[in-house]
């Protein structure tokens, strides 16, 4: 019996609680007249960033493509004459993209980043296909200062073997010193 009364009381309290919201202010933001604040980590349009030297950060490792749950990223690796990897083409089909940010999480070089821009509607779906030239920005995005090749073992232009962080210079194989 007490339980029933308690249950009834609980329902009544709920009603009163909801009724009290009649006098509270609405949280609605009247977009587009009023632009909402979007945090930098908001997941919107995807960009490809550059490292501090201005080179493409993307090394075409394909991890974003494989992490993508809707398989909307396709790319092809190629390399420059010094052995630096970069994408020959990098295509995102935004008409399939669900802005989940898995690509950003998978990216080992901070190259692919989601930005707070979500206003990318098109009348023609074909225009939602972004190629590398549409994706690549000239800045470092959310992670300034990071350069993948400074911590990787591969040598590239202006970074020889042993010049990466925490690397000793190349060994002299012919040395027999203990």
């Amino acid at each position: 019996m007490l339980n029933i009364l308690k249950a009834i009381w609980s329902q009544l309290v709920t009603l009163v609680e909801v009724l009290r919201h009649t006098f509270s202010k609405a949280d609605t933001v009247q977009y587009p007249e009023e632009m909402p604040y979007l945090a930098p980590r908001n997941r919107g349009r995807i960009v490809l960033t550059r490292d501090p030297d201005g080179e493409e950060r993307c090394v075409a490792c394909n991890l974003c493509a494989v992490a993508c749950p809707v398989d909307c990223i396709a790319l092809q690796k190629t390399e420059d004459e010094y052995g630096r990897w970069y994408p020959e083409f990098f295509r995102i089909n935004f008409s399939r993209c669900i802005m989940c940010g898995m690509c950003e999480e998978a990216c080992p070089t901070y190259a692919i980043q989601l930005t707070p821009d979500f206003e990318m509607c098109e009348y023609d779906r074909q225009n939602m296909v972004y190629e590398k030239e549409h994706l690549l920005i000239s800045g470092e995005g959310k992670y300034p200062g990071y350069s993948f090749y400074n911590v990787a073992g591969k040598s590239i232009k202006n970074k020889d073997k042993g010049e990466a962080r925490n690397e000793s210079p190349p060994v002299d194989v012919r040395s027999l010193l203990p």
């Binding site: 394909n62 493509a65 494989v66 993508c68 809707v70 398989d71 909307c72 990223i73 396709a74 790319l75 083409f89 295509r91 995102i92 089909n93 008409s95 399939r96 779906r125 074909q126 939602m128 296909v129 190629e131």
Partner: peptide
């Protein structure tokens, strides 16, 4: 089973 890029490979030719 993890092949990627299914919806982007041909997207440059046609998004369909």
């Amino acid at each position: 089973h993890r092949a990627s890029g299914r919806t982007a490979i041909d997207a440059n030719i046609s998004v369909h």
